[in-house]
Amino acid sequence: MNKENNQVLLEIQNLHKQYGETTVLDGINLSVHKGEVVVVLGPSGCGKSTLLRCLNGLETIQEGDITFYGKSITGKNVNWQETRQKIGMVFQDYDLFPHMTVIENIMLGPTRVQKRDKQEALQQATQLLDRVGLLERKDAYPRQLSGGQKQRIAIVRALCMNPEIMLFDEVTAALDPEMVREVLDVILGLAKQGMTMVIVTHEMGFARAVADRVLFVDAGKICEISEPDEFFTSPKTERAQQFLNIFQYHQ
């Protein structure tokens, strides 16, 4: 499905980022359209996570611009409190607040930041929890949950803020294999509902199934952008080919 005619939500122009002397992102350009799922692939250390963190204001950039709905979100004057409500992010280590129950974790943002009506927020929270199949765990503490459960709760927590776009940073990398599927299924469900997403992952099968576009990043630069089927069957660049070969085992 070609979503490239939809409105551009996020526009990244010539993004440069350095850590001290090392260049981590070297001129990234990307437009993310409404309803689109962009999957970012690449070898470790190529800057994928950093790219995502720049989109959420967790990293500073040296050069370039990022605009969200046409407004710049780089520089010093950005109201991140407001912006981060519209850009949801889920991390590799889920990081639920250990001293709060599941439902308290989820309701913190909607009630304290968005100042929404408690009943209304609770209704949305229970609906979302039910969708991911964890409603009966709503009064549990994070330490009582498995990794996969915690990650699904982290996704619900982010969703309850009603974001326009969701960022996923290797969210299954820290999970045991049996739990990976349940989390990926949630994300697939979100994609079907038309949520705009930028996903960094190592799960190739998942990437192929969920992506509208695949971005291959190597050494801080975008090496290749293609449709998923194209990318996985016949990648255009040599680096992409090498990268995909790592995941093949047949002779």
């Binding site: 991140w80 280590d93 943002g109 304290r112 803020m161």
Partner: peptide, 27 residues
């Protein structure tokens, strides 16, 4: 209180004061 906890709090839009009150201080 780990850095990732703080980032987690920031990503749901908590202000610095709210971060201290709801995330940092209790832990």
């Amino acid at each position: 209180v780990s850095k990732t906890q703080i980032e987690s709090g920031l990503s749901i839009g908590l202000s610095n004061l709210q971060l201290v009150r709801y995330v940092i201080l209790p832990q």
